[in-house]
Design a protein around this nucleic acid. Structure first.
Lengths: 331, 331
DNA sequence: CTGAAAGCGCTTACAG
DNA sequence: CTGAAAGCGCTTACAG
C-alpha cells in the first residue's frame, strides 16, 4: 500500500479510503490511486485490515463436520458456500471424526484465526466451552444435531418424524416384524430415529422385539453382518428400517448377496446414490442436505447482522420417497 | 496479551516469548505467564502474530475445487486434511463451478487472507495469473488436472492409461463395438480418457466409429438420454465405456430401465457407491482420491519446507476392478 | 534472561 | 476532501 501511495503521490490514508470505498475522495485522486494499484498488481492484506478495522470482521467462518468426505456433510457445505459467497465470506473446514477433543481443537484454531462465525455438526459431548466466545460476539449455529449445555441456533432434520413415517409406511404395508438398524444411541440423530421407530410401533400397538433392534456402528460392513445375522435368526424380520446411509448400503449389499432383496422390505433414512437403479429401488426418507446448509448459513448471517432474541431451532421435513423396496409385502 | 502481562507482572515481550515457546525464559516467570494466560482464558491472535512474524506464515492453505459437494473432491480434501493436520494447518475451501473467473476470485480471496499455499483443481483456462504469487513464494500444487501456462507441481490419475486398460479389457472380452461416453473434450481429464479409448482401439486394430463416440455434458440425466439413443440406434454398441462417475450412473440407470444391463457390457471410470450391489456389479477403473489429496499435500508442504528444483508431476495408477458388468460377452 | 521500542499492513479519529 | 499520527495484537532486534 505504501508503494501505491508513493506511485499515486498521495498519503496512505487516501489509498485506504479509495480502496475500501467508503469515504468521499476526490474523483481525480481516486482514479490515480486505482490505476497505481492496478499497475503494481496491489492486493489488500485482508487480515491486516481486519486487525485495525472497527468492526473486526474477518469475513470468514469455520465449519466443523464429523467428516468432510461424508457426502451428507459436503452437500451441507455446498449449501453454506452458496449463501456465504453472496456475503463475500470464505469458509474454513475441518473434520472432528466424532471426537470432542478434535472438535474443540478445530474450533480453537478457527477462533485464533479470527473467524466471525462457526457452523458445527456437534460431536456428542459438552459444548458449554463455546459460551465464552458466544458472549464475546461469535456467531454460532449447530447443524444436523443440537448441542448440549449451550443455547444456540440450530437446524436439524425431522429425525423422529421421518423415522416414524418410514416405519408407519412399512406397517401400513402389512409388516409387523420390522427390524431397526441404527447408529449408537448416544448420538442424537440415532436416538431420535430410534424414538421415531418406537413411536410408530407404539401407535400401531406392535410390541417391540429386542432381537430386532440392533446398533451396528456406523460402517457399512458392520451393517452387512448385522443384517445377515438378523435374517438368519430364528424369527427373522419381514422388513428393515436402516436409519443411516452407510447402514442402508451395508444392509442392501447383504440382502442382495443373500438373494433376499425381493423378499425383505427395506426403508432407509437418507437418500443414496443409485437408490433408483438397484432393483427394487430403495425407498427412503430423505434429508435435504443443501437446504440444511443454506438455512444454517442464513441463521448465522442474521446473527452477524445483529439478530438478538431467543435461539431459533429449525426442523426441516424429511419426505418419504417410494421406490419399491419399502412397498414389498410380507410373505 | 496485555492483560496476561499485567496479571503476571511481566512485559509483553516475555509473554510473547513464553507463549510462542522459542526463546529462553526463566522457568518461574514462564510458569507465572502460563497460569495467568490460563486464568484469563487467553487465546493468541494468530493473524496478528502472522503479520509481525519473520516467516509470515499463516498456517492456512486454500483449496479450490470444481464443486465441494462432488464426492471425488471431498475425498481428495479429506486426504489433504489428514496431512495438513499434522502440520497444524487449516484449510479454506471453495467451489469454482468450472468457471475460470470464479476460480480466480476464490484464489484472490485466499491470497488476500494470506494463505501459505494453494491446492487447485484447475478449471480449463489460463493459469499464468498465478505466476506472480508463485514467484513471491506462494506454494501451489495442482490436482486432478494439470494447469495451463504455468509450470508447477501436479498430481493426477493415469487417465489415459486407466481408460486404455478399461477399453482393452472390453476388447479382450470379445467386444468391437464399444461406445465412448465422456465429458466435453476441452476438459483435460475428458480428453485424456478419450485418448486412452482411441489408443486401445488402435492397438487392437479396431476402427473408430463416430456414431459410438458421444460427449454428453457432465450430468447423469444427459448420459441417460445418450445411452438410450445409442442402444436404440441402427448398429448399437455391445459395450459402453463411461468415462466419469456421473455419466456411469446415468448410463447404468438407462441400461437397467431398458432391461439391457445383462446384455450390454459397461466399464466406468471412477468408482461409485453401490457399484458392487447392483447386478451385475459395475466394473470400473478406480481413482484413489484420498491418495491424490495426500500426495498433493505432501508436495505442497515440501515446497513450504524449501524444496527447490524442477516441478514434479505425479501420476497415480488407476487399477481395474472387475465386478461383472465389464465381463459380459457380446451377443 | 528481560524490557522498552519499533514496526508488520492496515484503518480511523483528529486537525486542517 | 486530505494527511500526519496513533494504534489493532502481536514479534523481534536492540540494549541492558
Amino acid at each position: 500500500m505504501k508503494d501505491v501511495a508513493a506511485l499515486a503521490g498521495v498519503s496512505l490514508s487516501t489509498v485506504s479510503r479509495v480502496l475500501s470505498g467508503g469515504a468521499a475522495v476526490d474523483p481525480g485522486l481516486a482514479e490515480r490511486v486505482r490505476s497505481a494499484a492496478a499497475l503494481l498488481g496491489y492486493r489488500r492484506d485482508h487480515t491486516a485490515s481486519t486487525l485495525r478495522r472497527a468492526d473486526r470482521q474477518s469475513a470468514s467462518i469455520g465449519l466443523a463436520w464429523e467428516d468432510v468426505s461424508n457426502p451428507f456433510f459436503s452437500a451441507v457445505q455446498r449449501g453454506i458456500e452458496d449463501v456465504a459467497r453472496e456475503h463475500d465470506m470464505l469458509t474454513f473446514v475441518g473434520s472432528s471424526d466424532e471426537q470432542p477433543e478434535r472438535e474443540r481443537a478445530l474450533v480453537e484454531s478457527f477462533c485464533s484465526r479470527g473467524v466471525d462465525g462457526l457452523i458445527i455438526a456437534p460431536t456428542t459431548g459438552d459444548h458449554s466451552y463455546l459460551q465464552r466466545d458466544r458472549a464475546l460476539g461469535l456467531a454460532i449455529v449447530f447443524v444436523d444435531r443440537p448441542p448440549r449445555f449451550i443455547d444456540a441456533d440450530s437446524v436439524v432434520s425431522d429425525n423422529s418424524g421421518g423415522s416414524a413415517l418410514a416405519v408407519s409406511h412399512l406397517i401400513a404395508g402389512g409388516h409387523r416384524r420390522i427390524a431397526f438398524l441404527g447408529d449408537r444411541p448416544e448420538i442424537y440423530t440415532a436416538a431420535e430415529r430410534f424414538a421415531g421407530y418406537r413411536a410408530a410401533l407404539g401407535d400401531a400397538g406392535i410390541p417391540q422385539d429386542p432381537h430386532l433392534i440392533r446398533h451396528p456402528r456406523y460402517h457399512a460392513v458392520n451393517a452387512y453382518e448385522t443384517t445377515v445375522d438378523l435374517v438368519r435368526g430364528p424369527e427373522p424380520p419381514t422388513a428393515l428400517f436402516t436409519s443411516q446411509n452407510l447402514i442402508t448400503i451395508g444392509a442392501l449389499r447383504a440382502l442382495h448377496d443373500l438373494g433376499l432383496h425381493r423378499e425383505i422390505a427395506l426403508v432407509g433414512f437418507d437418500d443414496i446414490v443409485l437408490a433408483d437403479t438397484v432393483r427394487p429401488g430403495v425407498t427412503v426418507v430423505a434429508q435435504d442436505a443443501p437446504a440444511l446448509g443454506r438455512m444454517a448459513a442464513e441463521l448465522l448471517f442474521s446473527q452477524l447482522d445483529g439478530h438478538e432474541g431467543p435461539s431459533r431451532h429449525v426442523v426441516l421435513p424429511t419426505p418419504l420417497i417410494e421406490r419399491g423396496s419399502g412397498e414389498l409385502r410380507p410373505r
